[in-house]
């Protein structure tokens, strides 16, 4: 009986593969720990602000959300004015930034000659690289005087339209919700337009060419083919811009005017969640500080939901492409 003698595996190789396996295990554990830190950062931010704001959130509850009385001296904290300010300025920003972003994306994907596309889109994206404090300074020193010079004209034109006229009535302060909304619009422009531009480029050329072959104009191709194809991602991009606008602090703090009075006019000073926190936090004590942290918690929850929707919508198009 002739045995086929297999060479036994040398001892040290076996030992080595065992230590390798152990090292791999440890390495993997470290990596996983670091990845979980990302989760911990988000969860921690929510829990820490909830904890910091507990005195106000649990004591006043719904009253905190619905009252417009904000009086630190008498420990009265109602968040309605900052919440309204955040929502109004963000909505103004969206109403202005969405059409302009769409125009930019359309220009860069369908109209501009090839040599122009790279530099122009790089320039637009440069807007996103400028630190927000610079927007704040420019807003205060340059844009506020500009707005106060055109606000009498706004009073006389838009201010006379029935129903929405009240929005544009007011003294020409320059400061206010409208000014903040416009500054925010410029800030979120590059985010929305770059998402739109990227998703417009993913539309299969075959679809567009078929439409052109049937005699469509460029506009009809964009409106009837490109936009429906990319609808979910475009909405995602808009929500991404909304998320940015809601949480932006430095760009709006100087131009809002820091007033807790709720008025119908967009030309009047207001406040927002983030600018209230930035303006008052370091002078605040006890309950006032707790109220500001509670505002931070609200802001975090709202932006989290908005960004969640944004990411979900953006995924839809990626899935359609099988990415």
């Amino acid at each position: 009986m002739s045995a086929i003698s297999a060479e036994p595996i040398p001892r040290d190789t076996e030992h080595r593969s065992r230590t390798d396996a152990r090292h791999d295990f440890i390495f993997r554990l470290i990596l996983r720990f670091c990845a979980l830190l990302v989760l911990a950062a988000l969860l921690g931010a929510a829990l820490a602000t909830l904890w910091g704001g507990r005195d106000v959130l649990f004591k006043d509850g719904l009253h905190f959300l619905l009252s417009s009385e904000w009086n630190p001296v008498e420990n009265q904290f109602g968040a309605l004015a900052p919440i309204a300010g955040t929502l109004i300025t963000s909505l103004i920003a969206l109403m202005l930034a969405v059409p302009v972003s769409f125009g930019i994306a359309l220009f860069l994907t369908e109209i501009a000659p090839n040599w122009m596309r790279g530099p122009v889109s790089a320039a637009i994206e440069l807007l996103a690289a400028i630190p927000s404090i610079i927007y704040g300074m420019w807003g205060l020193f340059v844009f506020v005087p500009f707005m106060s010079s055109i606000e009498p004209t706004l009073n006389d034109t838009l201010g006379n339209i029935p129903v929405i006229g009240a929005l544009f009535q007011g003294p020409p302060l320059g400061l206010g919700l409208l000014t903040a909304g416009i500054v925010l619009a410029v800030m979120i422009l590059p985010f929305i337009s770059s998402v739109m531009r990227e998703v417009f480029q993913t539309v299969p050329a075959r679809l567009k060419e078929s439409s052109y072959a049937l005699g469509s104009t460029t506009w009809e191709v964009v409106w009837d083919i490109v936009l429906p194809y990319t609808r979910s991602a475009v909405i995602g991009g808009i929500f991404l811009g909304l998320g940015r606008a809601l949480g932006e602090t430095m760009a709006v703090t100087f131009v809002l005017g820091n007033s807790y009075n709720l008025t119908a006019s967009l030309l009047m000073p207001g406040t927002s969640i983030s600018s209230s926190i930035a303006n008052e936090f370091n002078e605040a004590t006890e309950l006032h500080r707790s109220a500001l942290i509670a505002l931070g918690f609200l802001l975090f929850v709202v932006t989290f939901i908005v960004l969640l929707i944004a990411r979900y919508m953006l995924r839809q198009l990626a899935r359609k492409e099988g990415r």
Binding site: A35, L36, V38, L39, A41, L42, G44, A45, A48, T49, W51, G52, L240, G243, R244, L246, G247, E248, T249, S274, I277, A278, L292, I293, G296, F297, L299, F300, T303, F304, L307, L308, R311
Partner: peptide, 26 residues
């Protein structure tokens, strides 16, 4: 992995002032 990637994208555009409050508390 998918959920961490998803949440990382959210952290990417989370309001920075809230992150400041978070660090203040912790």
């Amino acid at each position: 992995g998918a959920s961490i990637r998803f949440l990382n994208d959210i952290l990417l555009s989370a309001p920075s002032i809230v992150l400041g409050l978070f660090v203040y508390v912790i």
